[in-house]
Design a binder for these strands. Structure first.
Ligand SMILES: [Mn+2]
Ligand SMILES: [Mn+2]
Ligand SMILES: [Mn+2]
Ligand SMILES: [Mn+2]
Lengths: 217, 217
DNA sequence: TAATATATTTAGGTTCGTCTAATTTAAAAT
DNA sequence: ATTTTAAATTAGACGAACCTAAATATATTA
């Protein structure tokens, strides 16, 4: 139906819209797609023809409703396959992204719904990101950054805002895992480091940078 | 590494070599690939450059050792994913081919080996076709056509030589399933129909055409 | 507001995988 | 051994997705 490339552009535009506002710039898109700006202009023209995006030259691009539905479908595929890789094949959460980048493009409504059922209709992927349901509806998880908590606050670690392998490795090394309960024991004024009590037991101190990449609720 | 198209050509050449002899004709390849002859000539030149095939113009084409290894890898992927779709997701054996055509191109040695392990290292796919192991070695299943049996012979239904949906549907309808034991009760001289006793119970009569598409051992 | 800097598009090219029409090579039949 | 037929290749073109270099449009800042 759509090429892998088109699907990747749609997903990239979708994510940029989520984080940076409705209108997406050519250069931003070029950056995340790892191509040069003229390639993006080219592609946006073609995708505009197909009514996947609304594009006006030099004015940036937005997804059409159609484009958005396709993008959400890809996100659904990606996250369900990530669950499969971790839950069934025994991958670690820092290893699955690249494989899911391939699997997300496998076509077939029935396939992904069967996979969904097989996995027990999970609500979130291994990184805590919400999985759109078969109708394209995203469960709105109301999580906040760890860095927004005050001393004494308690919460559960539900997701990451930095998906890089290096950050995930860091969390593993520090013994901080998805689902852990944590309490902010203290916040150091001087350098904004957070000392946490994990699962009522372990004590860990993390930097502001880390606290800005951890989602809790 | 290789494009989907290249991989599909390699698989097609591999299968044609298996059934029609070492040298594959441009026209045969065009037919199974569903493209026109000049496209094949073109593609073979490029694949020759990459040492995936040995191609001499107007003399047909053969796989190189490298090309053969890639082809066997694709076949391995295809068949393992078919097992997954049937065993884990609950697909029927006549529904899995097209999805496996997509999944077979997912890259990653580790992925397919983990899948293999997850499935319990199956030796055959849902159609009874042997699955190459991680080293590319195909278990040689010594099966024969049902039509080669004599009256009174007994055997197990281990595979099909016709993979068409219509034939698989026919078998389902007739209640003949992979793994069934069967005994040739009688062969009608006049029209070569086979009357079989299935699992020591049911009795079924099949045409020569069907007997030519059933593999037993 | 005019000058400068940055973002975007246009122009022209490349590779991959396909096509049709025309030509050449090989095989089969007379 | 010629002629006829069939198979394969060459020639020229096209769309998708990319590129570099040059031109233009927008934003910033003097
Ligand atoms: Mn991911
Ligand atoms: Mn994820
Ligand atoms: Mn198949
Ligand atoms: Mn099969």
């Amino acid at each position: 139906m759509h090429s892998f490339t088109e699907e990747n552009y749609l997903k990239a535009i979708y994510k940029l819209q989520e984080t940076n506002g409705e209108v997406v710039a050519t250069s931003a898109l070029a950056q995340v797609m790892g191509v040069h700006a003229p390639s993006v202009t080219d592609m946006l023209k073609r995708m505009g023809q197909k009514k996947l995006v609304s594009y006006q030259k030099s004015k940036g691009v937005k997804l059409t409703e159609k484009g958005k539905q396709v993008a959400i479908g890809i996100v659904r595929n990606h996250r369900l396959w990530e669950v499969f890789l971790v839950e069934k094949l025994g991958y670690r959460w820092d290893e699955v992204h690249d494989i899911a980048e391939q699997l997300e493009h496998i076509q077939g409504e029935e396939l992904i719904n069967k996979l969904d059922a097989y996995l027990g209709f999970p609500e979130a992927d291994p990184h805590g990101d919400p999985i759109p349901n078969a109708k394209g509806v995203l469960p709105k998880l109301k999580s906040v950054l760890l860095s927004s908590l005050k001393e004494g606050d308690q919460a559960t670690f539900t997701g990451v805002s930095d998906h890089s392998t290096s950050f995930l490795h860091y969390l593993d090394k520090a013994g901080i895992a998805l689902g852990d309960t944590l309490k902010v024991k203290s916040i150091e004024q001087y350098d904004q480091t957070y000392t946490l009590t994990l699962k009522g037991k372990k004590e860990v101190t993390v930097s502001l940078k880390v606290a800005n990449s951890i989602l809790v609720s």
